[in-house]
Simulated scan of single mutants.
Amino acid sequence: MTARITRRQLVQRGAAGVTLLSLPGLLAACGGGGGGGGGQLNDVLRFSNWPLYIDVDEKTKKHPTLDAFTKETGIKVDYFEDINDNATYFAKIQGPLGQGRGIDRDLIVMTDSSRFPALLIKKGWLEKLDRDRIPNIGNLVDAQASPPFDPDRSYSLPWQSGMTGIAWNEDVTGPVTSVDQLFNDPKLKGKVTVLSEFADSIGLTMLSNGDDPSKVTEESFARALATIQKAVDSGQIRQFTGNDYAQPLTKGDIAAAVAWSGDVVQLLADNPKLKWAIPEKGGMIWTDNMLIPQGGSAPTASTYMNFVYDPKIAARIAAYVNYVTPVKGAREELAKTDPETAKNALIFPTDDMLSQVHQFDAEALQNDDYQARWQKVLGA
């Protein structure tokens, strides 16, 4: 890449969000996946990830942790920043995978709340982890041990996570601490945005209604939908957004938003009056997961997973990307070199914060009727 922009500049341009981090994608839809299964390590790991989602030496433009992995294991990494968004990437890979072919990748990263990791598992298009090669899996934080889409973590390990809550601009409003306030406070009318992402906004609203987003029922879904529709009809909600709420919030054009924690980390440099919090009745957590696509080398990919689950390595990645690391001990390691970043609770949530966030029902994400009804609320 030439003239590489920083992650914060990318957010400022409204080009990508924390959960959705997007740039144009490129997929080699050829057969094979670096040699397939078996017990042998390959000489090369072919790794597809989102842009600006791994540590970079700004002078050399190299990835220090990838170089360290090669030095330690002898495995070269062909690293591709070719995942534009979950839906687009899935559309590219489903053809070859559906024909029983590989996609020339050993490792890909996709978001659990997008429904696609669960769909890949259901269709049998993923290789199982080679857990014997991942002793560091014991460093996985407890809150991520058993997600609804992969309860035993047979097919996935978290890469990074983020939280969904409420952000507000203190130049415009006081604290906005609940979804009920966001949707009903007359002082906020017409100054609120809500994420168009199904799991984020439906999940927060379910929590506000006293329902469990990890176990969606027709009744709880209908209640959440009605709550949001009412706020749309009343004019409380100005619009549904991706991360393009970022600049209006920073400038004070909107007062409050359903927002991703990582966006606020990035935007604080421009406006320290921005605040983010988990709503009183709870927030949502999403995770970008490392997955081994059909035909990929499970031993090689699993060896890399073990490497990045070393707290020292996880700390180096977290210090650059500013997402929530899933690795125990990373904060303590980072505190040795960057104590201020290590203190940031939006990057290293406290146990109390993690106890307040919830994952969304994987089966509900696959419900076409729910998706169609949500699209209707969005006006699509």
Rank of each mutant, 00 (worst) to 15 (best):
D112V: 04
V308Y: 07
V357D: 01
Q40F: 06
W125T: 08
T250A: 14
A318E: 13
L204I: 06
D351C: 01
L45T: 05
N184R: 08
I83D: 10
Q247L: 12
K71Y: 02
L249Y: 08
K230A: 15
Y370V: 00
P51M: 03
L334Q: 10
A167P: 02
I292N: 11
T73I: 04
G102T: 09
V141T: 05
M206R: 03
I285G: 08
W50A: 13
F149E: 11
L291Y: 07
G235R: 04
V109R: 05
I278L: 04
V216Q: 11
G203W: 04
S302T: 03
V308C: 06
Q99S: 12
E58M: 09
A226Y: 00
A28Y: 08
K71D: 14
V141Y: 00
W286T: 14
S297K: 10
G37L: 08
T205P: 04
G242T: 13
D211K: 11
D361H: 09
S146T: 12
D233E: 15
V18A: 15
L41N: 10
N306C: 05
L45M: 08
W125L: 08
V141S: 09
A277Y: 00
T73S: 14
R373Y: 02
K343N: 13
P175K: 09
G98E: 05
A319M: 10
K312C: 00
D233Q: 11
N169T: 05
F183M: 14
N367T: 02
A29T: 12
F90N: 07
S201H: 04
A91S: 15
A315V: 03
W286Y: 13
K123Q: 15
R101Y: 15
